[in-house]
């Protein structure tokens, strides 16, 4: 394998892995507080379209990212209201949120289809970016790539080293016990879903602003669902999510490189790779990581009348 190909695959893995990492972190903290959100796909779409539109209108990609994060968070509040306050089924609400995101993003993005923008530019890290091989692979990316791993570390720190993190994990394991210990499960779940929405919005913004530089309907193409599988692979741990996101990013990147180089396999078959990989991950890790599942995941906290 030539060095050039290897570098291309590495760059692709990091680039495609970045939105997956944000998405996986988003899902991880949600599930840590006991809420499984299949609407992540919709949140990412809202983030992608809002980030793109704001960047086009203002010419400022940073503003686009901030707007995308806020839009994702606000959008996730619909879901939060349904599953926390109205105690509705999480899986059905998640899918409804996905539909809503698909439709709303299509409506918002329609006038912007076909527009190409610069979006987030690569920032070269001085000195390091001149290194042979590593320079191009690791030190010539956009800001969201550089921030991805620190974000994972910060979330890990919050989850495992702070009182707030302890409370939210307690709610995820057993909300009744957490309630008895003086925590407010509803408030914690709202807070976490807000942050989860911020991360989902950023994940979407990276897709439209840094990877594609344009907007297309349903451009997430199932990445929100990969993230749900990746959470299981990562055993609900933010740092393991980094490895998972890189693995998936690598699969997407490898598939794109194979297509670009005209490997004589139908592109439709190559496109299946990440989905099949997700299923494989589910089967292999779904069994072994059962002990790591937050105790009350997916259950509805009935309150304590």
């Amino acid at each position: 394998m030539s060095e050039l190909l290897l570098v291309s695959i590495m760059i692709g893995a990091i680039q495609s892995g970045t939105p997956l990492l944000y998405a996986t972190l988003s899902e991880t903290i949600g599930e840590r507080v006991g809420i499984i959100n299949l609407g992540l796909e919709g949140i990412m779409l809202i983030g992608a379209v809002v980030g793109f539109v704001i960047t086009v209108l203002t010419g400022n990609a940073a503003l686009g990212v901030v707007a995308a994060a806020l839009a994702g968070a606000l959008f996730n509040m619909i879901f939060a209201f349904l599953v926390i306050t109205r105690r509705a089924n999480q899986l059905a609400c998640g899918l409804a949120l996905m539909f809503c995101g698909v439709g709303l993003s299509a409506l918002i993005g329609a006038p912007f289809i076909g527009r190409q923008i610069e979006g987030l530019n690569a920032i070269k890290i001085p000195v390091f970016s001149d290194l042979p091989f590593f320079g191009r692979a690791f030190f010539q990316h956009d800001i969201l790539v550089y921030l991805a791993i620190p974000t994972a570390v910060v979330i890990w720190w919050f989850l495992f080293k702070t009182r707030w993190g302890l409370s939210l994990r307690a709610v995820g394991e057993n909300p009744t016990a957490a309630f008895a210990a003086g925590k407010n499960p509803y408030l914690l779940q709202y807070q976490v879903l807000f942050i989860s929405g911020l991360l989902g919005g950023i994940a979407g913004a990276h897709l439209s602003l840094a990877l594609a530089h344009n907007w297309a309907e349903w451009m997430t193409a199932g990445r929100g669902f990969f993230a749900v599988a990746l959470v299981i692979f990562a055993k609900w741990h933010p740092l393991r999510a980094i490895a998972g996101a890189l693995l998936f990013g690598g699969a997407i990147s490898l598939q794109l490189q194979m297509q670009a180089r005209g490997v004589p396999v139908s592109s439709f078959i190559l496109d299946m790779l990440p989905y099949v990989l997700s299923l494989t991950v589910l089967v292999i890790w779904g069994r072994t990581s059962r002990s790591a599942v937050p105790g009350s995941l997916g259950r509805v906290f009935q309150g304590t009348e």
Binding site: R86, N89, F99, C100, E217
Partner: peptide, 26 residues
């Protein structure tokens, strides 16, 4: 865009889901 009608479908689902509150064993 035709996909916009997904919003209406989601809204129908939202209001129906929001109604069924506190179902046991949910």
């Amino acid at each position: 865009p035709a996909a916009a009608i997904h919003i209406l479908m989601a809204l129908v689902l939202f209001v129906v889901l929001a109604r069924s509150t506190g179902k046991k064993g949910g």
